[in-house]
Design a binder for these strands. Structure first.
Length: 921
RNA sequence: GGGCCUGUAGCUCAGCUGGUUAGAGCGCCACGCUUACACCGUGGAUGUCGGGGGUUCGAGUCCCUCCGGGCCCACCA
């Protein structure tokens, strides 16, 4: 499958089918009043089926199609996280992708042309495992490509297949199977995203294992190599014995690991001043005793001064090792004197390097003790003992060594259980070992203070949302202790695009890699042949060998802006979208994805990759634990959307701030559903008055209450806009929502009768009625657009009743026209009128009668500040409260009334009419 | 050990630069089928703002300290 199939590649851009697909500023010449005609309002509104209806409509109309003729300034580009296919999407994805979509929709309505691609991450261990099990194959890069290959079986879902039963195939065949398998996953994922209402331009999607992505990854690597930013080194490094691959610092995870302290006696040599007194060290890894190269204590440690410069002999293996001083040794740890082995941990590596100690490695790459007795073990009993350890796992070797120590009397006391921390590969389940190997690195500031400072400065150029997430970036960059290890000894992935000459001696010359021409990318060195060579020269003296390693999956994902933006493939597009505006992502991968992307962009483009980073929080279980992928599967995202509706689920997601963990709460979704339904119903009502023509002319709004409402709405628009500009969608939603409920509960009730035209005898609509109708139209017009980013389906449905085109291409509202209509009206008038209405309702509620019951007379004591407001809206208050007799307003005495209850308005006296009883069938 | 976030009504959360008597929704109680909505409406009850100190005329908000949750880094002798 091609990465960017379609419209996006072929300039010019698709012409939007509807005239309003491009946002225009919400400014119009005076007198150019929008006249909307209401049509087709359903008798019974519903949110059901809106997802399918509008997904189809948006696709057909190209509502979200990216117009690539726009300039960089007009574009808002998003570096979407590519979800791992072969995993499954869970509620956490729905949560964070909704946040991004809210931003995308807002920016689009603000007039930006939004570049919002979708990627699929199908390059990595999850896909590798899945392809193995599904097809019963495994990747063996030494094998040649087979044209038209068919796997032994298909659909071996669920159970894993022993590697012996897997058919070995070439890397290229393996990648093809991966692409075949992930097509289905991607279809499922796309269905979910469409149903959720992500306003992605589906013409722009990519796969991290596609030829285009591989080309970008390899090209960027070759550029790094050419500039000296990529290099190889033979060095001890962290190694996962299960996956048998080197592991990068960023993939480490410290976990608790049970172990034991063992006190082990070393014996000073006969010429030592300490001869005769054993030196006791403590170790949790006695199985490494044979790999001991020194005992090390802190230079200031009084206890060991007399030993520095002398030698001791190890127990059992009888190897002579020096006792040396090094400041990294800590007097308060263990016995204060450590056994340095090559290599037990990273401190050992440091000592080995700085003290120039010999290398005595006994752990092989499969995590077992070497199968050859090392030369430095000389005595016969020692060699015999080691022979027994050969091939054992570290676990059983430890038992054997401890037994031998106990037998020889060199174990001081019995092992003491302890809980220690060990480094694990985040996807592995055995502690990492340290083995020496040749690996490729990319400079990331871990060994270079200048580069480190430059990358910290890049971080400072990015606006983090929320800002405190920047600390994670700074801490990580500041704490780096080595360059980025990018080579992996895996079989599936993007190849490191290099070959090496084979010398006449038959040795491989790693120092002079053979580099492909960029035009030849992507290459697979295990099956492709470097220029100037032929396949029969592979692996023979005078010929070449291909680099067997693949790149770290982050080495590809760190280039998502380049992959999605068309770097070096579509430079015209790239110039319009890069550096991107937004990187949305989870907080857990700041040190990996976010940082590595910053590194690549800095090195290749001397630029930040994006200006903003929006970091979403976790979804927590009801028991406040992070909802893991496996647990998340209990509630499938599609099930959620089907049960509650997409608008409802989006509402739940949008209610949580960026960077803050949120509870998985069905209740919040129900509220969202209620909001969506309310939007439909209130809109239906607001559009129901008059002859169906809504004239959105601010000049026609004359009534104080209507003006007050619009003045309040103008404030809401300003506040919501400001919040969204600051990536605070929660505040924008809350502000809008609060206003909306007041609008429904109070304003609609107050204005209802006047809008119907009650009291107007003639066909001629009087000014007060017209004022209400116009105000309703203006308010609805704005409210719908304010809600559109969060509740795209219900708002689009309402829009379709009376407006042209998609609301999602309508301009974001501005407060200008509302203020024009409101004049100098005080928004407080609506609040006061609402309080007065509530006071009247309370009379009926306490009398336990229907709200339709008329009030024959009432006297209200209103706080001084509200008197004018109640008087100005008296007609509406009377209508809303069904006051059929006198409504008297007096000023409340100081201390009278509770401001928290009906704004301090107190009913002094009231008389109710006969309760209205009416049964509607 | 270092750092970040967090602790407000039974639940989920607002509370911006310190300023009347601390808010919302859900849930709960009572009432009401009102020509937008019963997937509804109306009214009501509910808080030692984690504890303790301090600054201030005034602290949920600022400072110190302790306690509880979550996370990141470091810690493998």
């Amino acid at each position: 499958m091609s990465t960017f199939s379609s419209a996006a590649d072929a300039a010019p851009a698709p012409t939007p089918a509807t005239p309003t697909t491009s946002a225009t500023p919400d400014v119009r010449p005076a007198g150019d009043v929008v006249r909307a005609t209401v049509r087709e309002v359903p008798d019974k509104v519903s949110t059901d089926g809106l997802e399918a209806k509008y997904d189809a409509a948006w696709t057909a109309q190209g509502t979200y199609a990216f117009d690539r003729t726009r300039t960089r300034e007009q574009v808002y580009s998003i570096d979407t996280p590519p979800p791992t296919v072969s995993g499954s999407l869970h509620v956490g994805h729905v949560f964070s992708y909704t946040h991004t979509d809210v931003v995308a929709r807002f920016q689009r309505m603000r007039g930006k042309e939004v570049f919002y691609p979708m990627g699929w991450d199908d390059n990595g261990l999850p896909t590798e495992r899945r392809v193995q099990n599904y097809y019963g194959v495994r990747c063996d890069p030494t094998l040649p490509y087979v044209e038209g290959y068919e796997p032994p079986h298909e659909g071996g879902e669920g159970k894993s297949i022993k590697s012996a039963d897997q058919q070995p195939i070439s890397r290229r065949n393996f990648i093809e199977l991966c692409e075949r398998l992930t097509v289905e996953d991607e279809r499922t994922f796309e269905e979910l995203w469409r149903r959720l209402g992500l306003s992605v331009d589906w013409n722009h999607h990519y796969q991290t294992i596609s030829a285009d992505a591989r080309t970008v990854a390899q090209k960027a690597f070759l550029r790094n190599l050419a500039r000296g930013e990529a290099y190889q080194a033979e060095a001890p490094g962290l190694w996962d014995v299960t996956f048998q691959t080197a592991v990068a610092q960023a993939e480490l995870e410290a976990r608790d690991y049970p172990g034991h302290f063992h006190r082990v006696a070393f014996h000073p040599t006969s010429d030592s001043p300490a001869a005769g007194t054993p030196v006791i060290i403590e170790t949790t890894r006695p199985e490494l005793l044979a790999a001991c190269v020194a005992l090390i204590a802190h230079p200031d440690d009084e206890r060991y001064q007399h030993l520095f410069g002398t030698t001791v002999r190890s127990p059992l293996f009888d190897v002579e090792v020096p006792v040396v001083a090094h400041p990294a040794a800590q007097a308060d740890k263990g016995a204060g004197i450590a056994m340095c082995c090559t290599f037990g941990d990273l401190t050992d590596v440091q000592w080995w390097r700085e003290l120039r100690l010999p290398t005595r490695s006994i752990i092989s790459r499969d995590g077992r003790i070497t199968r050859e007795t090392p030369a430095w073990i000389e005595t016969e009993p020692a060699r015999a003992l080691f022979a027994e350890l050969e091939g054992k796992t570290t676990f059983s070797a430890r038992t054997a060594v401890v037994d031998a120590l106990r037998a020889s009397g060199d174990l001081d006391g019995e092992p003491v259980a302890t809980q220690r921390k060990a480094n694990f590969f985040e996807k592995g389940d055995k502690p990492l070992e340290i083995v020496t190997s040749r690996q490729w690195y990319i400079r990331n500031g871990g060994r270079d203070a200048d580069l480190n400072a430059a990358l910290l400065a890049r971080g400072a150029e990015v606006a983090f949302h929320p800002d405190f997430m920047r600390v994670r970036y700074d801490n990580w960059v500041g704490g780096l202790n080595g360059d980025w290890l990018v080579s992996r000894q895996r079989f599936f992935g993007v190849s490191i695009p290099l070959w090496y000459p084979v010398l006449d001696s038959g040795e491989v010359d790693h120092d002079h890699p053979i580099v492909p021409d960029e035009s030849a990318l992507p290459v697979d060195p295990s099956s492709d042949v470097p220029a100037g060579f032929t396949e029969d020269q592979r692996g023979v003296p005078g010929g070449f060998v291909g680099e067997a390693d693949v790149m770290d999956t982050w080495a590809t994902s760190s280039l998502t802006p380049q992959i999605a933006g068309g770097w070096e493939r579509d430079e015209d597009l790239f110039a319009r979208v890069f550096p991107m505006d937004l990187r949305p992502q989870g907080q857990d991968i700041i040190r990996t994805w976010l940082f590595s992307t910053a590194v690549r962009s800095h090195l290749e483009h001397d630029s930040v990759p994006w200006r903003n980073a929006a970091i979403s929080g976790w979804i927590l279980d009801p028991d406040r634990k992070k909802m893991s992928k496996s647990k998340g599967n209990v509630v499938t995202p599609m099930g959620l959307l089907e049960e509650h509706g997409s608008d409802a689920v989006r509402y739940w997601a949008a209610s949580a701030r960026l960077g803050t963990d949120a509870a998985f709460e069905v209740g919040q979704m129900k509220i969202g559903r209620r909001l969506a339904i309310k939007i439909l119903n209130a809109s239906k009502f607001a559009l129901a008055f008059g002859d169906g023509e809504i004239v959105l002319d601010p000049a026609l709004v004359t009534e104080p209450l209507d003006r007050a409402m619009l003045a309040g709405l103008a404030d809401v628009v300003d506040r919501a806009t400001e919040a969204l500009e600051a990536y605070d969608h929660t505040r924008a939603l809350e502000t809008t929502e609060t206003f909306f409920w007041t609008f429904c509960d109070d304003y609609l009730e107050l204005v209802k009768d006047r809008a119907y035209g009650a009291g107007a005898d003639s066909d001629e609509v009087d000014a007060a009625t017209r004022s209400a109708r116009v105000a309703l139209g203006l308010a609805l017009d704005v409210l719908l657009r304010l809600f559109a980013p969060v509740v795209p389906f219900a708002t689009e449905e309402v829009w379709s009743w009376w407006r042209e085109g998609s609301i999602h291409r309508a301009p974001w509202p501005t407060s200008g026209p509302l203020r024009e209509a409101a004049g100098d009206a005080d928004p407080g008038v609506l609040a006061v009128a609402g309080h007065a209405l509530a006071a009247l309702r309370k009379i009926k509620s306490e009398a336990k009668v229907s709200m339709r019951t008329p009030i024959l007379s009432v006297e209200l004591a209103v706080p001084a500040a509200g008197v004018a407001g109640v008087e100005a809206s008296a007609v509406d208050v009377r209508n809303g409260g069904r006051v059929e007799g006198p409504l008297t307003v007096v000023e409340a005495a100081a201390g009278q009334g509770d401001p928290a209850v009906q704004g301090g308005i107190v009913v002094v006296a009231s008389e109710l009419g006969e309760p209205v009883v009416r049964n509607r069938g």
